[in-house]
Write a protein that binds this DNA or RNA. Sequence first.
DNA 1: ACTTGTTAGATTGTCGACAATCTGCTTGAT
DNA 2: ATCAAGCAGATTGTCGACAATCTAACAAGT
Lengths: 242, 242
Amino acid sequence: MGKLDFAPIADTTRRAEIVVLLRRAILTGQLEPGQKLNELRIAEQMRVSRAPLREAMRELVQEGILTSIPYAGTFVIDVTAKDIDDAYSLNKVLDEFAIELTWRLRDRRFFDELDRRHDAVKQATRDLDTTRQIEMALQLHGLIHEWADNSVLLETWQRLASRLQMYFALHQRARKEPVPAEDIHETYVRLLKGSDMRAAQRHAREHIGLDFEELLAYARSLESKGARADRPGLPRERPGEA
Amino acid sequence: MGKLDFAPIADTTRRAEIVVLLRRAILTGQLEPGQKLNELRIAEQMRVSRAPLREAMRELVQEGILTSIPYAGTFVIDVTAKDIDDAYSLNKVLDEFAIELTWRLRDRRFFDELDRRHDAVKQATRDLDTTRQIEMALQLHGLIHEWADNSVLLETWQRLASRLQMYFALHQRARKEPVPAEDIHETYVRLLKGSDMRAAQRHAREHIGLDFEELLAYARSLESKGARADRPGLPRERPGEA
DNA sequence: ACTTGTTAGATTGTCGACAATCTGCTTGAT
DNA sequence: ATCAAGCAGATTGTCGACAATCTAACAAGT
């Protein structure tokens, strides 16, 4: 018999597809932070009943990009400057760890994949597709976490990456300027291919740091402008879990 | 008006209560790894319809202690030695980070809470209540993550703690010996109260390390004994997310 | 003996309807 | 005018029934 091994076939449940649609809508900023998700309306738009929609929403709540208040509704999470700062500082720690784990596992396939993703970022940049640029940059950044061969680290990173994508998309959408044209990942990729692990770790911190500082400044400016009063019934605090 | 601030009232949805019940059943080992959860049977036992039960199960899937395969069922996650090892190594990194963040925030209330949780562990040990001992030990350990004032870190820790509790409960249930009587947390607490942060971080690694080594040895012995053939239809691989 | 097609039973996925709860407005008393 | 009570509408939570899919046993053909 042939030694061909097939990949498992795709999920074909409505729930799974709904999750993909909703996640994309949130991460690209089509659904704004704090916005309420009306179940009936969304279910009708998607031509689906509320059952699979609600199950999908529960998944995204646990994924950390939605928040739910019983009998009040499910909302896109609010983005505070502190959230961004918290995510940023944890991200630094995880990156350092991921580089350490990945370092001895780097091989030809790793470098090829690194280049492939790097190219994807540059392509999206040329196309002026900001949304895709953000997504591809995070994919490039996520490679060290995928390669580290630590399932728990990878899960943690993916949860974090979801929020990062949302934050950055929000930021990009706010400032009208076009995308930065120069390639800010060049050094990052080069160091990951090199032989100085400490240098790579150090750069990962600082490189990410630059983007984040800008993002933080934006978030802080939003908050100093006072709480938004346009959307009524916003949850100011999420109820604690038992 | 009084300056009393009330805690948010408890969630009163069936879904939330089901989550608590299911989580406890899994973390205490009443539901074994790999075991399938029959929706109809559980729903009847709890006197609830399948809708809130299924939503609760989706949450636990995202929490990482259940795994779902479309049209096949939802199962308690399988525990492999590598999973434990992965969780262990990430836990070391998170602990080090948490101690760093918490260090300058330590105050009277922190030390009091530290003692309170430490006492709770000792009490459970005296009562020979192994399940509670594990839970309290993790609570003691979680204090540095709660105190660190980083919401993303806290979330990450809580997800990790769920699995750790499951692993340890499984281990305890397997070996017939009674609980270790001596107080293994004494040094940990003392160092957290002291003034040498590096020493506290170092101890956190090694202290946890001991428990884990034992746990790992157990998990490896299970796997070398060959795959279990008693439960049919076990998922050997979970389908990837798109 | 081995494979293939079929069928019955069980289980998961989805739907539409009903119950519980919240929100905002109206009403009416002071 | 102010405020509380209560009502109407909208939205979420839950239920029971149906559809889609899987599993295992059985029959039939090679």
